[in-house]
């Protein structure tokens, strides 16, 4: 489904598509107030091992995480539940290491989800190498002093959210392939039946529009 449709979709349509007898309510995307309260929950989890606060984080993030996994492996509900479990457990265990000055909570959760996906692929023998992804991805973002201040991060984040809505369909489509489906530029070019050069330039154009890549 094109990204624009997802962004502008009617929340009722979401329920109709995914409703199951056991489903919990679908949360709306985080607004400013909500993300602030999620930050408070995160601090409670870190400092007081507060399970109610953790449950709030779960309600907000688990459906997102499940969607992220399904974007990569459509229909694989068990894999998606496993990813939710892995990530949420890491949130609980690593809460004390989360540094709000380094990255927003949303971005931290995204990197945890990405790392869990890589780990999952490796454990399922699609990666047979001995290279341990934990050592590659985990430490740098957690421990090094962050070059950005929180205010800067929020501003860039707002720009990106606004910019994504304005992206031409073709550019949004390649970003989805790359980030959500975890495809290489080459795989994206095969699946979208586009020349490799077109995929690369669309990714670059999109990231420039989002002011993520600056012109050299």
């Amino acid at each position: 489904m094109p990204l624009e449709n997802r962004i502008n979709s009617d929340p009722n349509a979401v329920r109709n598509t995914y409703h199951t007898p056991m489903s919990t309510t679908v949360k709306k995307p985080a607004g400013g107030g909500e993300s602030a309260s999620l930050g408070v929950c995160m601090r409670r989890v870190a400092k007081h091992r507060d399970k109610d606060a953790f449950a709030k984080l779960f309600d907000h993030y688990a459906p997102q995480l499940r969607a992220y996994s399904l974007a990569h492996e459509p229909g694989a509900g068990l894999v998606a539940d496993e990813l939710v479990q892995e990530v949420m457990i890491r949130v609980w265990l690593k809460a004390g290491k989360y540094n709000a000055g380094l990255s927003s909570l949303n971005t931290w959760i995204f990197t945890l989800a990405r790392n869990c996906r890589i780990d999952h692929l490796r454990r399922n023998k699609r990666y047979v190498t001995t290279i341990d992804p934990a050592d590659i991805f985990n430490d740098i973002e957690d421990e090094n002093p962050g070059p950005f201040q929180q205010a800067q991060i929020s501003r860039i984040e707002e720009n990106i959210h606004a910019g994504l809505k304005e992206l031409p369909r073709g550019q949004a489509e390649v970003l989805t392939k790359v980030y959500l489906e975890g495809k290489s530029h080459r795989q994206a070019s095969v699946e979208l039946e586009l020349p490799l050069g077109t995929v690369k330039s669309r990714v670059r154009l999109a990231l420039k529009k989002l002011e993520v890549l600056l012109t050299r």
Binding site: L3, R6, I7, S9, V14, Y18, H19, T20, M22, S23, T24, T25, V26, K27, P29, A30, K51, F54, A55, F58, D59, A62, P63, Q64, R66, A67, Y68, A71, A80, D81, V84, Q85, M88, I89, S103, S104, N106, T107, I109, F110, T111, A113, R114, E141, P147, F148, I153, I156, E157, I160, H161, L164, L175, T176, Y179, L180, L207, L210, V212, L213
Partner: peptide, 29 residues
């Protein structure tokens, strides 16, 4: 990289959320 991660995070937030079961939640808790 921080900026690129923000893009991934924004895209993840804009997916249609996929509801999780109450059983999964209680088992994790």
């Amino acid at each position: 990289l921080q900026r690129l991660n923000l893009v991934g995070s924004a895209l993840m937030q804009q997916l249609q959320p996929s509801p999780t079961s109450a059983r999964l939640k209680s088992s994790i808790l």
